[in-house]
């Protein structure tokens, strides 16, 4: 396990890609970028266990696969459990001298539906048992694969095909599940939030996640032009705005206790208003078109600000 992480552009170009071109992810989808950035952090033999989701479906359209490293598709709710099995079996094989590699990194990937909702029990079990797995969620804010249904990661005010906006409803009315906080509460060695716009921060954090002993968790924001009704060329801009508005702040949590704000979030003097993040997205259009939802929009802004202040406090940032 000696391979360096590729952080500089020059090194990134030289590092072997783990996902080939020609996959069928939608134009402008951030998920393949996220996977490629993950690949820049790898340190040696790696296995990926992936839950059902957009990334799984669209990178493996019959009869092809875009994956260049060992990859197993599991059911929707159990990527963490399968990864736990893989890790423990490797351990035994290694002890018995029946396995050539000194170490194999095991990564589990799920979308927000597979992580916040249906796979949550399995994830929590893996964290509690302490398997040496890196779990990464690419969070595009809804069940985009089945046609944009709300999930536990859907933001308040977001319109989906099961949280309609109209005269009586402003879209999803509930708050987003604070997944990184919940995972950190398991007191695992490492939790980090990342944005594909901040590639250096992303790769360094993913490498840390691989290096710690025991479970690590990476929460990546993943803009989705199809579901968000945004321009395909705006995904990286939205990934940046998610950080600047405090909707997806970047930070790390060590052992569930020590919070550390990451550079891009630390440098924010004042949060960018959420309007700047919402307006380029058709899924929030009703919040600006219908004056009756102005109060709800203000409520969302208040929630974001409150979360931001609390996070700053935890991180010891003024």
């Amino acid at each position: 396990m000696t391979e360096e992480a590729a952080v500089r552009i020059k090194d990134m170009l030289e590092k072997d890609e783990i996902l080939s071109s020609g996959h069928r992810m939608c134009a402008g989808c951030a998920a393949p970028t996220i996977v490629k950035l993950m690949g820049m952090a790898l340190r040696g033999p790696t296995v990926v266990c992936e839950a059902t989701g957009c990334l799984e479906v669209a990178t493996t359209i019959y009869p092809y696969t875009a994956w260049k490293i060992p990859w197993i598709h599991v059911a929707f709710e159990n990527a963490s459990a399968v990864a736990s099995g893989v890790v423990e079996a490797y351990k035994v094989m290694h002890q018995k001298g029946r396995f050539e590699h000194e170490h194999v990194d095991v990564i589990a990937i799920g979308g927000d539906g597979g992580t916040f909702d249906i796979g949550f029990g399995s994830l929590s079990g893996m964290l509690e048992r302490g398997h040496d797995v890196v779990y990464m969620v690419y969070d595009n804010g809804a069940y985009q694969n089945t046609g944009i249904q709300r999930s536990g990661a859907t933001l308040p005010g977001q319109e989906t095909t099961t949280s309609w906006a109209g005269k009586v409803s402003p879209g999803k009315e509930q708050r987003k599940k604070p997944i990184a906080e919940i995972v950190a509460a398991h007191k695992i060695p490492y939790v980090a939030t990342v944005s594909p716009y901040h590639r250096r921060d992303f790769i360094q954090k993913f490498r840390k996640a691989l290096e710690v002993e025991g479970p690590a968790f990476i929460h990546a924001i993943s803009p989705c032009p199809r579901g968000w009704r945004s321009e395909t060329g705006k995904s990286m801009e939205l990934a940046k705005l998610a950080v600047e508005t405090g909707i997806h702040p970047l930070y790390e949590v060590f052992d569930g206790e020590e919070y550390k704000m990451s550079g891009p979030s630390k440098r924010i003097k004042e949060l960018t208003p959420i309007e700047d993040y919402m307006k380029p997205q058709g899924q929030f259009r009703h919040l600006f078109k219908d004056p009756q939802w102005e109060g709800f929009r203000e409520q969302i802004q208040t929630w974001i600000k409150e979360d931001w202040e609390l996070l700053k406090k935890k991180c010891g940032v003024e």
């Binding site: 249906i118 069940y143 046609g147 249904q149 095909t161 099961t162």
Partner: peptide, 14 residues
């Protein structure tokens, strides 16, 4: 809960 090919039923009901 969303699942292809039954999701339209949930969407319509929602």
């Amino acid at each position: 809960y969303p699942i292809t090919p039954a999701t339209e039923i949930a969407e319509w009901m929602s």
